[in-house]
């Protein structure tokens, strides 16, 4: 139940064993990750939740090869994170949309496609497809400032989806948006996940968001950053927004909260 990956499954896409990461800072070493063991299976929707400094973003960045672990092993699709990145294993969505103001939405989505060398025709086709996927059809010619914050974030998700990566890594993608927009985007993200069957790693600090979205919730705690609990969600795959009032949902949320509290009590 705690997902430390005792039984090696063929469908495992991310596998971390005894992962350690220590940053050397001016104030001495900071233990960002300590002995992190986790298996993420194909098609999983895994949320990472915890207070700031618990290493949830750092772990995601390790998977994306944006940080290099100082100990333990980490494989993505059976390769090192670096190799996996070169094989375009994942798309990354940051907290801010980070669209280029000098490119239209369509041209922004083309950015990775240009770098990866897709043909002009294929680029257009893919842009059309992903714009439809995130409900932004017809907005390709607009500049980012002409779109609302929620639409911009959807465009950035489209950008991450454009090149067919199997894994979608999302670092608090809706953190800067208001509650109503967030609910809406969460619903859309689930629909997208159901349609595409991607594996999603999702960093958040909102308990309801984590419980609503995930098949598995990884609870983390800080100093040193570590996993304190991994919760398999009993909720069905079909999740209307009002599932959040169900007894099961409240129970899972309660367990997450307990896990977070336990992590704090350790200090």
């Amino acid at each position: 139940m705690n997902g430390t990956g005792q039984q090696p499954e063929l469908s495992s896409v991310v596998s971390a064993k005894g992962l350690d990461l220590t940053f050397q800072t001016n104030d001495g070493p900071v233990h960002a990750l300590k002995d992190v063991n986790l298996e993420i299976n194909k098609g999983d929707f895994v949320s990472f939740i915890g207070p700031s400094g618990c290493g949830k973003t750092t772990f995601l960045r390790c998977i994306a090869a944006l940080e290099t672990p100082t100990g333990g092993s980490l494989t993505v699709n059976g390769m090192t994170p670096d190799e996996a990145r070169r094989k375009r294993a994942y798309g990354y969505v940051f907290q801010a949309a980070g669209l280029y103001p000098w490119r239209t939405i369509a041209k922004n989505i083309k950015l990775p496609l240009e770098i990866m060398g897709y043909s002009r025709q294929e680029q257009d086709e893919r842009v059309r497809n992903v714009l439809e996927l995130v409900d932004l059809a017809g907005f390709g010619g607009k500049f980012p400032w002409q779109l609302s914050g929620g639409m911009q974030q959807r465009a950035s998700i489209a950008r991450a989806l454009a090149f067919d990566a199997d894994i979608l890594l999302m670092d608090e993608p809706f953190g800067a948006l208001d509650e109503i927009v967030r609910d809406h985007l969460n619903e859309q993200l689930l629909a997208l996940w159901a349609r595409t069957g991607k594996t999603i790693g999702f960093v958040t600090h909102s308990i309801p968001e984590a419980v609503y979205l995930s098949t598995r919730i990884v609870v983390m705690s800080p100093r040193p950053g570590r996993i304190t609990d991994v919760i398999e969600s009993p909720l069905p795959k079909e999740r209307p927004l009002d599932i959040r009032d169900s007894a099961e949902f409240i129970e899972v949320a309660h367990r997450v909260r307990e896990g977070l509290r336990a992590g704090h009590a350790d200090e």
């Binding site: 944006l66 990145r85 070169r86 798309g91 990354y92 801010a96 980070g98 770098i115």
Partner: peptide, 12 residues
């Protein structure tokens, strides 16, 4: 840093 990281994820 975020925009540079984004390009790194594309191995640009």
């Amino acid at each position: 840093a975020m925009q540079l990281d984004l390009l790194r994820t594309y191995s640009a």
